[in-house]
Simulated scan of single mutants.
Amino acid sequence: MIRFTRRLYSTASTPRIVNTIAEYRALRNEWLLAGKTIGFVPTMGALHQGHLSLAKTAKQDCDKVVASIFVNPAQFAPTEDLDRYPRTFENDVKLLSTVGVDAVFAPSVQEMYPAGITLDVSKQTGTFVEVKGKSHMLEGSVRPHFFRGVATVVTKLFNVIQPHKAFFGQKDGQQCAVIRTMSRDLLIPTEIVVCQTIRETDGLAMSSRNRYLSVEERETAPVLYRALRAAEVLFEGGERDANVLREVAGKILKESGVPVEYLSGKIGKDGAMMSGAVRIGKTRIIDNVLLGVEVRK
């Protein structure tokens, strides 16, 4: 029986770079034969302190930590920023070495999509994963292809890495819900660990896309968190009418003048998640707050 224990992470060495599935599986066999547990942090690179926080938590829980760096084409539409998405591989590896990550899985597109991949969903062939019921609202209503691409690549990565635990940030709250459901329904034995959102000092949730913001846009960007936080304060004060909470948050966003793509929140017996998406210039900002629910710190 595998027992999980908390441990301090170390900064012993540069992570091993692994580019192929075969090489990783050989490494994993070595670890399992030595009785090691494996934690996994999936990323698309362009790392920031939010990613490193996940890796630190993984290192506390598991003997070995693998981070993937793969910009997944299946979650981009033809009109989106796949080619422009920041790629900072050498710096990412340096950052991961500071938190004790043992291996970086950095496959090619061909390795992950052996049948090939096009951004046009109507022309795609091969096997894809879709989570019905949780993929087509909120983020999915704006980007209908997105969670299909996420569920597909995370399934592939879970099949390759076969981790005991995988670590995700609460900033992508709907994504966490989709992945939990996918893992449950496909009988994937990996434990999904969701950790608190890491924020800048002004509340803006850390994101790789924040680097797209101009100086003026960066000053405006925390408005979504301020709006969500205002609703959270009301909830903490006893307000349980979801319409009131949305109205308060919506008023702040309206006064700021930023285009709102969605603002959502429903109160259930176990609390709720209030989430939203706005567009600051050409950059989408997403965020959420949990109402009456806690995730791991």
Rank of each mutant, 00 (worst) to 15 (best):
E219Q: 15
S141E: 03
T98S: 12
L234K: 07
A12V: 14
L213P: 09
C176T: 05
R25K: 15
A115I: 03
K36G: 06
V295G: 09
L47K: 03
R199K: 14
S183D: 03
G276H: 01
T220M: 13
P15Y: 00
R16P: 04
N243S: 08
H145V: 08
R218Y: 05
I286H: 02
P259L: 05
W31N: 08
R246A: 13
D270K: 11
T197C: 06
T201H: 15
A22P: 12
G149A: 09
V154L: 14
N243F: 12
F128I: 12
Y262G: 08
K134T: 10
V278G: 00
P73D: 09
T98Q: 14
I38T: 04
K134H: 10
L33I: 12
V160D: 02
V104A: 01
I69G: 01
H48Y: 04
P259C: 09
L82N: 07
T201L: 13
E261T: 05
R16G: 09
E239D: 10
A115F: 01
K297R: 14
N29I: 03
F4M: 10
N72Q: 12
L290Y: 11
T88W: 01
D83G: 15
L96K: 00
A55M: 06
K156M: 13
Q75L: 10
T37M: 12
V260T: 11
F167Q: 01
E219M: 10
V248E: 08
T190P: 07
S122C: 12
L290N: 05
Y24E: 05
A205H: 01
H48P: 14
I285V: 12
T88P: 10
G292L: 09
R180W: 08
L213A: 06
T125A: 14
V244N: 09
F89N: 02
D81S: 13
I179V: 14
N159R: 06
M274Y: 05
R3L: 15
A22H: 14
Q196M: 04
L52A: 11
P222L: 00
A26C: 03
G257V: 04
R209F: 03
K251Y: 05
G169S: 02
D185T: 13
P163G: 08
R246W: 04
S207W: 00
L157A: 05
Y9N: 12
V293Y: 08
A205Q: 04
I179S: 00
Q175A: 02
V71F: 02
G238Y: 08
R211K: 06
P222S: 00
V150Q: 06
